[in-house]
Design a protein around this nucleic acid. Structure first.
Length: 487
RNA sequence: GCAGGUGUAGUGUAGUCUGGUCUAGCACGGAAGCCUUCCAAGCUUUCGACCCGGGUCCAAAUCCCGGCACCUGCACCA
């Protein structure tokens, strides 16, 4: 079986995620995060938010439900509600518009009108000549059907970005009229994908973390640091390039410093969260795969099974969005700096949270020859940081262990207690859940008030005084971190 | 969306071709207990499944039809 399929199985068994409402057969593209997955996802989001707050980003939280005008301006409506035709004989699909171009007729509004036109003009498939073609509405945005009359149609947002662009003037004020302005948002996005697949890799409702960086195109507020880690670049025209982000900038692989800076930042973030550096690359979009709003785009791709999967997209959106909103709303999106007025340029790193989580899970699985599985998650990402066990339930060890658990929980709530089965089985359970440390109460504990602390990846143990253990979260306990020196 | 394949406890599977002792077997897992002085040990008890709907038949997990889901490939992925 494949790595991804194995991981999906582990995820369901251990409670990371599973298909939603499966008692009713489920609906493709919708997944529920279980107890471990929910915590892990929170940790990923936290790491991401922290890394941007650090550089002065402002965080916002805009509505999922969005009015039609926003997507008319952004171009999503135009691009998403295309009518297409499909040929049942040869399977070809194209925009209906292109077929109607030469027929001298108007553009139909929906599939009913489209089919009527096909009948009226007796249009044929340009590929195979069949007369059985039919019109279809191709919606990848979810439209709400119960919008009140008069307020226009409402849509579920396909990206969180527009919630930032529409409030650009207010956000600029929050930044005291200064550029650069960095705004981040994490939340759900919705795309009615044709073929959802691979569990949380391609969802119809998914979590994304988007960053919109607004800056003066004549300045370079973001430049990559020198002497950072080597990154694999796959440019659209030249061959693969291995080097630092600043090296890639200097040698012209990347066209501008801002793009190079955010590629570098993204690389550090992903690697720091547990995406395997040897299975991570940055690939530049070919011109024919660029989205309608971007002029240059680099995807962070993780290798899952044998397939490179997009997990972050870093796009140069130029002035597209602000210019469009300016002309559609009539409100100025200009910034005045040193007497000159201009629309800022935007670079957007957009993170697929679910895909990042999946990549970390796949890349963190360590399986020994006998099939013993450990999830070597970074401690910041692990759902739980510590498990507390008694060596045996008898002789009062349970009571001592419960008390330690209760005291420790005040320092760090992400801790579990387990006394079921054998000690080995409990270690195994935690290894598969990615818990970095386990504490065991044994007979010596009663004598000298110490416990064993066992580290997940090495299996090594140290003894630690109970008072010392409960005084800090285990991931930052100096005695523990110095003993094991985890990444 | 198209084509092909698949659907049995929480997970992995046996059984389906050739309908009938299938009252659906096994392993892992969960729960309760016993035992055990640190890495999935053992023992006892126990929990738990034929994707949904229709049809054929004396009889359907098994054959047929429809739906749903999953997998693979193609297309799509702003």
């Amino acid at each position: 079986m494949s790595e991804v399929q194995d991981t999906i199985e582990l995820a369901k068994r251990r409670g990371f995620f599973w298909q939603s409402s499966s008692i009713y057969g489920g609906t493709s593209g919708f997944y529920t995060y279980g107890p471990l997955g929910t915590l892990m996802k929170r940790n990923i989001v936290q790491a991401w938010v922290n890394s941007y707050i650090t550089i002065g980003a402002l965080i916002v939280d805009s509505p999922v439900i969005t009015q039609e005008e926003v997507f008319r301006a952004s171009g999503h409506l135009e691009r998403f509600n295309d009518l297409i035709y499909e040929c049942p004989s040869c399977g070809s699909k194209q925009k209906l518009e292109t077929l109607l171009k030469n027929s001298g007729s108007g553009i139909p509004k929906d599939a009913v009108q489209g089919n009527a036109l096909i009948q009226e003009k007796s249009l044929k498939c340009p590929v195979c000549g069949s007369d059985k073609i039919r019109a279809l509405e191709f919606n990848t945005m979810f439209a709400l059907s119960n919008s009140k009359t008069g307020e226009g149609r409402l849509f579920l947002r396909p990206e969180t970005a527009q919630g930032i662009f529409v409030d650009f003037p207010l956000l600029l004020k929050q930044n005291r009229d200064k550029l650069p302005l960095v705004v981040i948002q994490v939340g759900k996005g919705f795309r009615n994908e044709v073929a959802p697949r691979n569990a949380i890799i391609r969802l119809r409702e998914f979590s994304m973390g988007e960053v919109e960086v607004f800056f003066d195109p004549n300045t370079t507020p973001f430049v990559p640091e020198k002497d950072q880690e080597e990154i694999v670049f796959v440019p659209k025209r030249s061959p693969e390039y291995r080097g630092t982000a600043s090296g890639a900038l200097d040698s012209g692989v990347i066209s501008n410093p801002g793009m190079a800076y955010f590629i570098q930042k993204t690389h550090m973030l992903l690697a720091g969260m547990g995406v395997d550096k040897d299975r991570l690359r940055f690939r530049q979009h070919r011109d024919d795969e660029l989205s309608h709003y971007s002029s240059e785009c680099w995807d962070a791709e993780a290798l899952l099974d044998d397939e490179w999967t997009e997990i972050v997209g870093i796009a140069d959106r130029g002035t597209y969005d602000l210019t469009r909103h300016q002309s559609f709303s009539g409100k100025s999106m200009q910034v005045k700096v040193d007497g000159k007025e201009f629309v800022p340029r935007v670079i957007e790193p957009a993170h697929g949270i679910d895909r990042i989580l999946m990549s970390i899970l796949v890349h963190s699985r360590n399986i020994s020859e006998d099939g013993y599985t450990k999830l070597s998650l970074r401690k910041e990402i692990s759902p739980y940081k510590l498990a507390v066990f008694p060596l045996f339930k008898k002789d009062g060890l349970s009571e001592v262990a419960r008390e330690i658990f209760s005291r420790y929980s005040k320092a760090d709530p992400f801790c579990v207690y387990d006394e079921a089965g054998s000690i080995g089985k409990r270690y195994a359970r935690q290894d598969e859940a990615g818990t970095p440390y386990c504490v065991t109460v044994d007979y010596q504990t009663k004598e000298d008030h110490t416990v064993t602390v066992r580290e997940r990846d090495t299996g090594k143990q140290i003894r630690l005084a109970i008072d010392d253990l409960v005084a800090h979260p285990i991931t930052t306990n100096p005695a523990v971190t110095s003993a094991f020196a985890l990444p």
